[in-house]
Simulated assay, not measured.
Amino acid sequence: MNQSARIGIYVVLVAVQKLISVAVQPLIMRMLTPAQYGEISQIVVVLSLAVLVVTFAADEIIARIYHLAGCAREGYLRISEYVCIYVIGTSICVLFVALAAYCRASQLELVYMFGAVFVLFAPLVSIAQKILRTSDKTTQLALFNISYSFLLGGGALIALTYSNSSIQAYFVAQGVVQFVFGSSVAVYFIKKGGWRPNFVAVKGILREASSAVPHTVVGWGFVGFTTYYVASVLGTYSAGLLGAGLYMYSVVSAISDVAVNVMQPRIYDARKNSGNMDVLRAIRKSLVYVSISLTGVGVAVATFSNDVMPFILPKAYLVNVYIAPCLVLSATVLGLGSLWVFFSILR
């Protein structure tokens, strides 16, 4: 299969994965009141911040170490050094969380328990995604992400359907899916690299990753802090209404994510091949076209979002529909910022 065909298949698969993520949210909204959706959103943004802290940007460093290794075997050995230590720490944490939840046995503790499971296993999933994304395994990455998004979204819908829209069931489903994917990734890497816990190697990875942590937390800030602030100050009902505007925000963000996911493997390949200038120039040209297209789509979605949203979202979520254009334009600017980072790397 030639490169153009491979890239075309990857674009389609990435688009399918993003479409699943975007399509699930209106279905979830139809099963929840704005107040319930706002409560879930408030907990989710806290969990997403916890994921960033626990991951500690180590996934980026591990992916780079893997690609700098002389061979695949050596790369897997280096990954295993980190994964083994992480599995030990995660196992201890999950045990304490389970014991605490068992002793308290309330519905709130159930949310915290499965939320903690989600957070602790998320970095393992992220490591697999980063390694697949930065290597010549784009189709496998897309299929992995499609399966991941489908099970997260499908699990949430099934849990809400059979629990009469229970928030606790939602987080149980999310935690179970994350556990399955995270533990499968850990088993895979340990099988490839062996059981090689190495505290010294992990210390070096975390030291190198520490400089990137502030950047990752800032990336959380716009949506995460805004949602948490609205839920805490104005109430979960207002946060649920904000979620309607953020849905349109996520549509535009998905478009920029597709562009970044498609470009990143090509950039790594070009840089690995001593910075092939022809390839780099082609990528720069593509980034320009993608940026222009993203701007056009963002402006179009912002212009017509108030007319489109009543056909997508439940009526109860449309009280503050007028804020959607502002959020869409914000997503467009942030998406252009992500593309500019790649463009500046290639200058």
Rank of each mutant, 00 (worst) to 15 (best):
S305K: 10
S293L: 15
D278F: 00
A302R: 07
V308Y: 06
G275W: 08
S286V: 04
V297Q: 03
S286Y: 07
L318K: 02
K272Y: 15
K272F: 15
K285W: 09
V290I: 13
A316D: 12
N306F: 08
I312F: 05
A270R: 06
M263S: 08
K285L: 14
L294C: 02
I292M: 11
A270P: 03
P314G: 00
V279C: 09
K285P: 09
D278T: 11
A282N: 15
A316S: 14
Q264C: 01
V260C: 10
V299P: 00
D307S: 15
V290Q: 09
N306W: 07
L294G: 10
G275V: 03
I312Y: 05
R266G: 00
V262P: 07
A270N: 08
Q264W: 03
M309L: 15
V299T: 12
P310H: 01
I312A: 06
G296A: 07
L313I: 02
V308K: 04
A300S: 12
G275Y: 05
M309Q: 00
V260F: 02
V319K: 13
D269A: 15
S305T: 11
T295I: 05
Q264A: 11
S286A: 09
N261W: 08
N261T: 05
G296E: 06
V260E: 01
I267G: 03
Y268E: 13
L313K: 00
S305W: 05
V288N: 14
V301S: 01
F311R: 04
P265T: 03
I292Y: 11
N273M: 10
Q264P: 06
V297S: 05
V308S: 02
G296M: 10
F304G: 10
V299M: 09
G296D: 07
P314F: 00
M309H: 11
S291F: 01
L313M: 09
N276R: 03
M309K: 02
M309T: 09
P310I: 01
R271Y: 10
I283K: 04
D278P: 05
G296W: 06
Q264E: 14
S291T: 10
Y289L: 14
N306E: 14
R266N: 11
R284M: 04
V299L: 10
M263F: 05
R266F: 03
R281Y: 11
N276C: 08
A300I: 14
G298H: 00
V319S: 14
V297C: 01
N276V: 02
